[in-house]
Design a protein around this nucleic acid. Structure first.
Lengths: 219, 219
DNA sequence: AATTCAGTCAAACGTTCGTTTTATTTCCTC
DNA sequence: GAGGAAATAAAACGAACGTTTGACTGAATT
């Protein structure tokens, strides 16, 4: 394969960029890990920046392809679709079987956007947002304020992202043994129940038999 | 003031470290913005790394001091305390009146921990977690599983952090004009209502008069 | 008045960075 | 097998990096 070196460079670059960020990653280290010559970066990609952009693009494509959102049947109730959506997002984030630098690199780019960010939002974030919004459209009253619907979506996605971004902190807080219990299934179930209860499609996540003032029933 | 240069260096370093990260920030740029000589870094702090650690410490102290959690009266209901908690967190994050590099630097450190991370967790994160957990202890049934309580807390904090970490993306998604409507008050109200509804202390955030299957009442 | 010392300054240190040049190898075509 | 493009290798480029040096300043101490 003629592009073997190119592929190795992309893989190595993706890993190191994801670990250290663009500036802290050095072309020499990337080439060392790729077992390629330094000049290969210029030859195949032009310069360090373009290598970075290409690596982000690879990450984005792989991320979308590897765990696609399953096509749900037309009659699937929106509550079940939400559970699938949440589960898929968690799988994309926490499944340790596939290379982790894909999502890591994308989130780095999203947190501190460069030129590669636009493409991610357009091809990755936006479709996901649309998917969630279509679920929420079915879950929520149609006359609901558009802005309110956005906030619901952000509340759901925020819960999911938290566990990825703050993994090290969560581990420090609850301890390593409790941390091991945080499986994709457990978390997806919790977030789904929590969110559905918030919008009134499920009973509250806990029974409040013993707790303080009973909820009112009318706003 | 004898330590004037030291203070200027800390301020400048904090800003630039927060903007670019440790590696991408250069000592020369820091000194330039501080209007100080390059050698001052070695003289006052030893080296770049120790300057960074000191800057993080400054950020952490300032962040805790400037917007402390108000002392609530003993008889304040837990639902109100949650609203105050959420509001204070949002203020700490989104209030544009105070220098933003404090929190920015801390979150950078938390996302990619170095030696300065431990102190942040111990002196900043842990107290906040304890505060939230004490509220949840009152809100939730006492016999509730410890792990379940953690998950509730993470669901609440995750919603709040989302708006800070993903601010640029939120803006891209909903558009600039809608983005301007996202005030501290609006968001704090939403997150509090959403979360309280999830755990059954408020009616669902929206009326579901027009929506699909009615919620069951027993799990 | 002499001495001390924290603080600042310009200049240069050696290293590593991204990039480029030049030479060599590999592989396909004629 | 010769010719030529594609790919890789080795070496060096100038620039920027973090760090260090040694001289200088001004106020406090003796």
């Amino acid at each position: 394969m003629v592009d073997d070196t190119r592929q190795r460079l992309l893989n190595s670059a993706g890993q190191i960029f994801a670990e250290k960020g663009f500036e802290a990653a050095s072309v020499r280290e990337i080439c060392l890990r790729a077992e390629a010559n330094i000049a290969g970066v210029h030859y195949h990609f032009g310069d360090k920046r373009q290598l970075y952009v290409e690596a982000v693009r690879v990450a984005q494509c792989a991320q979308s392809d590897e765990i696609p959102f399953p096509e749900w049947p037309a009659d699937m109730p929106p509550t079940d679709r939400l559970r699938v959506f949440v589960g898929t997002m968690f799988e994309r984030m926490l499944d340790s079987r596939r290379p982790k630098w894909h999502l890591q690199l994308m989130l780095r780019e999203l947190a501190h956007p460069t030129e590669a960010c636009e493409a991610i939002v357009k091809d990755y974030i936006r479709p996901m947002a649309d998917k969630l919004r279509s679920i929420l459209t079915d879950l929520l009253p149609p006359e609901l304020d558009e802005m309110e619907r956005w906030r619901m979506g952000f509340s759901i996605v925020g819960q999911i992202l938290f566990y990825y971004v703050n993994r090290p902190i969560v581990r420090l807080l609850i301890g390593p043994e409790a941390y091991e219990q945080l499986t994709v299934e457990t978390l997806a179930d919790h977030v789904t129940r929590f969110s559905l209860a918030a919008i009134g499609h499920r009973p509250p996540v806990v029974s409040l038999a013993a707790a303080s003032p009973p909820p009112e029933v009318v706003p």
